[in-house]
C-alpha cells in the first residue's frame, strides 16, 4: 500500500468568508469550487503541494443526521469546539506575524508548549481552530 493523506474536511458557515480566509489570509490556492449558496464544496491547499487539500464544506448535510444533531454541530461550531486542524511552518513566528497582519482572529500567540514544540493558533470564520506548529 502506498497511502497518502490527501484531503481533510472542515465545515464552513459562510463559504465566501472561509474561502477569503484560506486563500487571502493563509495564502492557499483554490482548487475546486462546486455547488451554490451555502451548499458549496471548495478545496484549497498550499501552493506547490497538490497532494494535500482541505475540503471546505457545509456542516451536517448527511441525511442521516437528525435535526437535534445538526443543531448541536452548528452550536459547537459557533462555540469554537467543533472543527480544528494542525498546520505546520518552518518559521512559526514569521507566519504568525503575516497571518495576524492580514487581520485573522488570534487565539494564541507563538509559545513554547509544555508538550515540546512551539505553536500558535487562529480562528477561521466558521469557528474552526487553526493551530500552526513549528517544524524543523
Amino acid at each position: 500500500m502506498n497511502l497518502t493523506i490527501h484531503t481533510t474536511v472542515l465545515p464552513h458557515e459562510d463559504p465566501d468568508a472561509s474561502v477569503a480566509f484560506y486563500r487571502d489570509v493563509l495564502g492557499f490556492e483554490v482548487r475546486t469550487d462546486v455547488g451554490t449558496g451555502t451548499m458549496r464544496w471548495i478545496t484549497v491547499g498550499p501552493v506547490g503541494q497538490p497532494g494535500t487539500s482541505i475540503l471546505l464544506g457545509p456542516p451536517a448535510v448527511d441525511p442521516g443526521i437528525t435535526d437535534d444533531e445538526r443543531r448541536m454541530i452548528t452550536d459547537m461550531m459557533a462555540k469554537g469546539t467543533y472543527g480544528w486542524i494542525l498546520l505546520a511552518s518552518d518559521d512559526v513566528d514569521a507566519t504568525f506575524d503575516a497571518v495576524q497582519a492580514k487581520g485573522a482572529e488570534v487565539v494564541q500567540e507563538p509559545v513554547d508548549q509544555p508538550y515540546g514544540l512551539r505553536d500558535c493558533a487562529f480562528r477561521d470564520p466558521a469557528g474552526n481552530l487553526v493551530r500552526i506548529r513549528a517544524v524543523a
Binding site: R71, T74, D75, A78, K79, G80, E105, V106, V107, Q108, E109, A121, R123, G127
Partner: peptide
C-alpha cells in the same frame, strides 16, 4: 431565533478566545 442563538454563542467564543490570547 436559532440564528440569534448561534450569534450569541459566537460572541462567547470570542470571549473565550480573548482569554486564551
Amino acid at each position: 431565533k436559532e440564528a440569534q442563538r448561534r450569534r450569541d454563542l459566537a460572541l462567547l467564543r470570542r470571549v473565550r478566545d480573548r482569554m486564551d490570547r
